[in-house]
């Protein structure tokens, strides 16, 4: 993995990882709001969201065309596109980038699908190393309980039904997530991911996340905004045609 994030790029990159139902997205969302409230420039990037690649992935999933290698390659394409068009430029400009899932998701899932680990490491050599990579560690039964409680059905690949572990989607999901969790354990060792105990309550976890992020914020660019209401007042305007969010965000 390239060392660019830490050494050359002025921005900061914080990412979250964990099995489905670990609560990582909630934590990232809270971090996002906290950083924005302090005026930091924050860019958010989600797994599987490249506008150019997404359609192919979607079709592949819907029509069950994806097998381990194509699953891996199309996700790598999506990730590469986001790195080059979204993540890297923001880091170069000095912004904070938050990513919900990163390369470790691919390492974990693809390895469970039988793809060579060393091939995956080389395939993804284009990625930028995160400033801090959080791993939200939750016991399997807890994660499965959270997902099962909130969802009537599971999607084919989400449940890992392509692995043929079980015909029952929820049983397959449980076995699939268990194996992914095993891979994450290995990745924590290999890449030094920062482990957060995701069985704690949400507020406590968020406090720990902020504590870990804080020391990395020195010297990061902030928006120096003249308060909108102040500006309006000075000009004697009401701002009635402005997007209401622009006024209230100050």
């Amino acid at each position: 993995m390239s060392e660019r994030a830490k050494n050359e790029l002025p921005g900061r990159l914080f990412i979250v990882e964990g099995i489905d139902g670990s609560g990582k997205s909630t934590q990232l969302d809270l971090l996002h709001k906290w950083l924005q409230a302090q005026g930091y420039l924050v860019v958010f990037s989600e797994w599987n969201s490249s506008p150019i690649v997404k359609r192919t992935t979607k079709r592949g999933k819907k029509e069950k065309l994806l097998t381990p290698i194509s699953f891996s390659l199309i996700h790598a394409a999506d990730f590469a596109h986001r790195i080059h068009s979204h993540i890297l430029p923001a880091l170069e400009a000095g912004a904070i980038v938050l990513a919900d899932r990163y390369v470790y998701t691919a390492f974990a899932r693809d390895a469970v699908r039988g793809v060579s680990r060393s091939w995956l490491r080389r395939l993804y050599s284009f990625v930028v190393e995160p400033t801090v990579a959080f791993y939200f560690d939750v016991p399997l039964h807890e994660a499965v309980h959270r997902i099962a409680a909130g969802r009537p059905t599971l999607k084919f690949y989400e449940a890992g039904l392509d692995l043929g572990l079980s015909d029952d989607p929820f049983e397959s999901f449980r076995m699939f997530q268990g194996r992914i969790r095993g891979e994450y354990e290995r990745l924590c060792e290999e890449f030094g991911l920062t482990r957060i105990d995701a069985t704690q309550n949400i507020v406590r976890q968020q406090m720990q996340v902020r504590e870990m992020v804080q020391p990395h914020l020195d010297g990061v660019m902030r928006l120096d905004r003249v308060k909108m209401r102040e500006a309006l007042g000075r000009a004697g305007l009401s701002g009635r045609y402005l997007d209401p969010r622009r006024v209230s965000e100050e």
Binding site: T56, S70, A77, A80, H81, H84
Partner: peptide
């Protein structure tokens, strides 16, 4: 890189 990953797929 993206284009090649697409081609590889």
């Amino acid at each position: 890189i993206t284009l090649n990953l697409f081609y590889a797929t």
